[in-house]
Amino acid sequence: MTGFEVLRVFCGPNGSHGNALGVVRDGAAVPGRADRQRVARELGFSETVFVDDPERGEIDIYTPSVRLPFAGHPCVGAAWLLGVDRLVTAAGEVAVRREGGLIRIEARPEWAPGRTLRPYGSAAEVEALEVPPPGEWVYAWAWQDEAAGTVRARAFPGRGDGIDEDEATGAAALLLAAHLGRALTITQGRGSRLLAGPRPGGLVEVGGRVVRDPRPDQPAGGVGSA
């Protein structure tokens, strides 16, 4: 029986909200891509991580419908859980650092999956948006306070796989920080908090707070389970 853990990544300052992440620590128990895709689909999280080597930080990332070479919230969550100073993804090595109870990762913007960054005139406009029909992956954002670098955002994957709105999206935050060329504090979804900003060498950092979800460990997606 293969179990999984659930983390909430990019929580608010008091540990609330955050995007749920499924983590299968024993990746060897689900070795094939087709089986991993099936497990990710059955679990239904926006992303599920399979840990292939916990000491090296080697991970494999899936949405319910596709495999991703890199994604922000899975990397931040996996780094917190494994306690490593780097991760190895299909896109490349991801540096990790810890500061004040936060986990931060560095990655290249070109690793991030395609996102449409759609600006709005006010935070109220972003908050009033309805979920669009399936189509392009949209990251809707507006300045809350441009001088302070605070942003209100919502994310609509548009994949038609049951994830209508993503609570906290590290890759999109990374792309927005790269696009604007400055440090940002982003409030996304119901109240998740993401920090992002440029780093030397063309890298961008994204980070936040991670907590373990209190729900008990469960068998993963029917792998060896009833």
Rank of each mutant, 00 (worst) to 15 (best):
R97L: 08
A124G: 13
V96M: 10
E42C: 06
P109F: 11
G77T: 01
D164M: 10
N19G: 04
Y120F: 15
V66S: 13
D53R: 02
S16G: 14
G92W: 07
G201K: 09
G189I: 00
A153G: 08
R33F: 13
P133I: 06
A112G: 13
A226I: 12
G92N: 11
R41T: 05
N19D: 02
E146G: 14
E55Y: 05
G32W: 11
S192Y: 05
D85R: 15
V23E: 02
T116Q: 15
G207A: 10
E127N: 15
R212Q: 11
A148M: 12
L195W: 13
V76H: 13
S122E: 05
L194M: 09
A29W: 01
G197H: 12
Y139L: 10
W143C: 11
Q218K: 10
L7D: 02
G27C: 11
D217T: 11
G32P: 08
R212G: 01
P214Q: 03
L117K: 13
W137E: 04
P132T: 00
D60C: 08
F156C: 07
R98Y: 14
F156A: 11
G114F: 02
W80M: 03
L175Y: 10
S225E: 13
E93R: 13
A40T: 00
R8D: 08
R97I: 01
E165L: 10
E47T: 11
L87N: 01
V204W: 14
G160A: 08
T116R: 15
W111Y: 12
V9Y: 07
G44Q: 06
P54D: 09
Y62S: 13
D35C: 03
R199Q: 14
V24N: 03
I103Q: 15
G44L: 07
L7W: 06
G83F: 03
Q188K: 09
G181D: 00
Q218F: 11
V211K: 08
S122C: 03
R36A: 05
L184A: 06
Y120P: 03
A34C: 04
I59C: 03
G222R: 09
R152E: 04
P54W: 01
G149C: 01
F10G: 15
W141A: 09
D161V: 03
I61R: 01
A95H: 02
T150C: 11
F50A: 08
D35V: 07
R118S: 15
A71H: 00
D26F: 07
A28D: 08
E47L: 10
E106I: 02
